[in-house]
Amino acid sequence: MRLDPALLPLISLASASALPSWHDKSAHEIYHDGAGFKIPTVHESAVLARRILDIERVGTLSTVFPTTHATENRPSNVGGSPIGLPDYFANCEPDTGNPTILELPIATSFKNVQAGSNISLSLRWHAPYKHWYSVASVPRFNLVGYLEEFTDEEVKDENIAACFVKKHPDAATWLPGNRIHVSKWVRLVVQEIYWIGGFGDRAYIGWIPLEEWQSVSQDEIEKARLPGEDSPWSWRLWFGLVDNKQEMLEL
């Protein structure tokens, strides 16, 4: 059985109503509560969000341009406009859930913060499968908070540099003390979490209380499985593109 790629949009519409929900169990399972599909709880969603924070490496920092800027020739009409730019992060303080960021004050996001902007970090799960899928069906979320600089003692005691470079080897060239740019270690102190787990009829969409975010254990994070983590065929089962594992293997 081989599917014509041109038919995939039609198949997705036809099969969307049959998509199961999922939570923090193995991704190849079809999740249900005995009577039907089960929408993950707020805590299960918090676990999945924390796993994304642990696995992913790049997010989008969103800030707002100031109305005036003394050192840059910006268009006059961008003041107050939001801008989202990709940046590295790492989960170097897993007990808190606060992402670690290597701040370069010369970068636009951090200039905006210095000028008084709020800041947030948006993340999404990039599932490791090769087959077609809908981005609307996979989790994404936003962390609202503020930047706080690490003390020298914290950087040393928590081995921040080694943690960050393990996730981002290329960042070794612009660590604090480099000869190219001024840089420093900061944490995004999380204050609010907004979660979109996927389609609303099978995933939680809404705010995750900070206490739920902070209560997630490392053991829960390690045991959780996101869509596509377990096998390349599981996602196609969920979309109804194949009826069973054997049929997937025959494709």
Rank of each mutant, 00 (worst) to 15 (best):
L121H: 04
Q114D: 15
K130W: 00
W195S: 07
K130V: 04
V190L: 09
R140S: 13
C163F: 05
H168A: 06
A172R: 02
H181L: 05
F164G: 00
E148T: 13
V189G: 03
N112D: 11
G228W: 09
G145A: 05
G200Y: 08
V216L: 11
V189R: 14
S231N: 12
D157H: 02
S183D: 05
E192L: 03
N118I: 00
V216I: 10
R124T: 07
L188Q: 02
W207P: 01
E212Y: 01
L226R: 12
N118F: 07
I160T: 08
F141W: 14
P128C: 04
E222H: 10
E153H: 02
D219N: 09
H126G: 11
E220Y: 07
V135Q: 06
D152G: 13
I205N: 13
W233D: 11
A127S: 14
E212D: 14
W195N: 01
V186Y: 00
K130C: 09
A162V: 06
G206F: 05
V165R: 07
A203R: 10
A203M: 06
E149F: 03
F199R: 15
S183I: 08
P169Y: 00
P232C: 07
P128V: 02
R179T: 08
W125C: 05
P232I: 14
T173H: 04
V189W: 01
P176G: 00
G116A: 09
G198E: 02
N142G: 01
F164P: 06
A161L: 09
P176E: 01
A172S: 11
I180Q: 02
